[in-house]
Amino acid sequence: MDELLAYKSLAPHVWILRASGIFRLNQESPKHHIFFHTIYLRWLIGFFSVYTIQQILKIYYSRDDVNKVMETMFLFLTNTDCIYKAVVFQSKPERIEELLNTLKGPIFNKGLPEHRPLLVDTIRHAMLYFRIFNHMSLFTCFLWVVHPTLMHIQGKPIQSTVWLPFDANQDPQYYIAIVYVWIQTSWLAHANTAMDVFITFLLEQCRTQVSILRIDLENVVQKSKEEMADTSSSYSEILEKRFRKMIIHHKEIVNSADKIQDIFGGAVFYQFIIGGWILCCSAYRMVSTNPASVEFVSMVMYIICILMQIFLYCFFGNELFYESIKLTESAYDVDWLEIPMKLRLHLLIFMERIKRPICPTAGSIIPLSNSTFVSIVRSSYSFYAFLKNSDH
C-alpha cells in the first residue's frame, strides 16, 4: 500500500496531539500507557479551564473599563475555542480513529506511481503549514511575555490579562505570574495549531483522493487496455472491475467528508462565530498601542494567526468543493467510444453519483469557502467600527 502515504500526511499531527494531551492513545497501546495518558488528558483540560476561569474573573472585575475588558476578551474567546476542540477530540476518539483507519486502508493507498506525487505533496504541505502556523503562534506568545517584562524592568506598572490572587507588580510574584501565563498561552497555541491543521488536512486528504480518482477516471480506458495485454482477462471484465473500484473510492471519500463534518462541524462553527469578535477585540486593542512597541507587533502577529486559522478551513474546504466539481468534467473526458455498450451504464451511474459536489460546512450551516472568509473579516470590521463609535 505504498507505505500508507495517505496516513503519513497526518501521522506527525496525531503524535503531536497525543503528546500535547489532546488526543488519546489508540486501544492497541499497553493498558498502563492508556491509563496514565488518560489522566494526563483530563489534567490538561482542567489546567486550561482554570486559566479560562481566571480570564472570566478578570473580565468581571474589569467590566466597567472597556479597554481592560478588551485586553482579556480576545484571549478568553481563543481559549474557549481551543477547549471546545480539545473536548471534541477527547469525547469522540473512536470516530476520529475510524477516519485515521480509512487513511491507512487500501482504498486511499493504492500504491500506483501516478498517485504518489499527489500524496507526497499533501504530506509536505501538511508539515509546512503546521510549522509556519505553529511558529507564528509561539512567537506571538513569546512577545506577550517580552512586552510586560520590559515594562516591569523599567519599573512601570503592568495589568495582567488574567485574575491573580496577588499583586503581579511585585517580585518574585511577577516572574511566577509571567512564567505561568507564558506556559498557558504557549501550550494552548501549540495544541490549537495542531488541531486546526489536523482538521483542515483531513479535508485536504479528501481533496487529494478526489484528484486521484480523477486521474483513475480519465485513464480508465488506457489502463484497462494495458492490463488486458499483461493478463488473460477480457477487456470488459477489467473495465467493469475498475469502474466498481472507482465507485467504492468515491463513496469512501464522501463518507470521510461527512464524518469530518459530523465530528468537527460544531467546533468549526463556533470558531467562525467567535472569529469575528476575536479579530474585532484584537484590532480594538491594537489601535490603542504604540506602533513602535513590542505590544503592537505582538497584536499584529496575533491577528495574522487568527486570520490564518480561519483561512485554512475556508481555503481547504473551498478546494475540496471545486475539486469534486471537476470530477464531473473528468467523467466527460472519458473515451466513450472505447467503452462497450453494456458498461456505459456503469459510467452513467457513476456520473449520477458525482453530480452532487462535496460541500463541507461548519455546523451544517456555514459553507467552508473563500466567500465565508471574506464575510467573517467584513463582520469583524463592522463590530470594530461599532465599538469605536460607541466610545465617542
Rank of each mutant, 00 (worst) to 15 (best):
S379P: 04
I366H: 04
V220W: 03
Q309E: 10
P117K: 05
F269H: 10
L138E: 08
T200A: 05
H33A: 12
S49Y: 09
E252M: 08
S364E: 15
E227W: 02
M151H: 12
F201P: 04
Y60M: 07
A6E: 02
V268P: 02
E329I: 15
A168C: 11
E352L: 15
S91Y: 11
W15D: 13
F198Y: 07
V294H: 04
F166D: 06
N192F: 14
T80C: 14
K355T: 14
E204F: 09
L368D: 05
Y60C: 09
F23P: 03
S256W: 02
Q205K: 04
F264E: 02
Y284W: 10
F89D: 02
K68F: 06
R353T: 15
N26C: 11
V181I: 15
T231H: 08
V14P: 00
V377R: 05
V334A: 03
I22K: 01
D2S: 15
L279K: 00
G46H: 00
F269L: 14
E319T: 10
A6H: 03
F383M: 11
S364N: 14
D230Y: 13
G275P: 00
L41K: 01
N370F: 14
Y302H: 12
V120N: 05
K156M: 12
M299G: 15
I96W: 01
V197P: 02
E323A: 12
S232D: 15
Y84L: 07
Y180K: 09
P93V: 05
N134S: 09
Q55E: 06
F315D: 02
S211D: 11
F296D: 01
D81T: 15
N67I: 12
S236A: 15
L75E: 12
F74Q: 13
F311T: 00
G317P: 00
G363S: 05
W277M: 12
N318F: 02
T361V: 08
A126F: 09
G111Y: 01
A177C: 05
T231V: 06
F316S: 03
F386T: 12
L143C: 06
T328R: 14
R214M: 10
L25C: 04
S375Y: 15
F243H: 06
R378M: 12
Y175N: 04
V210T: 07
H190G: 06
I176G: 04
F139I: 12
F130W: 15
T185F: 13
P157C: 06
T161E: 09
V66K: 09
Y332H: 15
K85F: 11
S364T: 12
V145W: 11
R42V: 07
F350C: 04
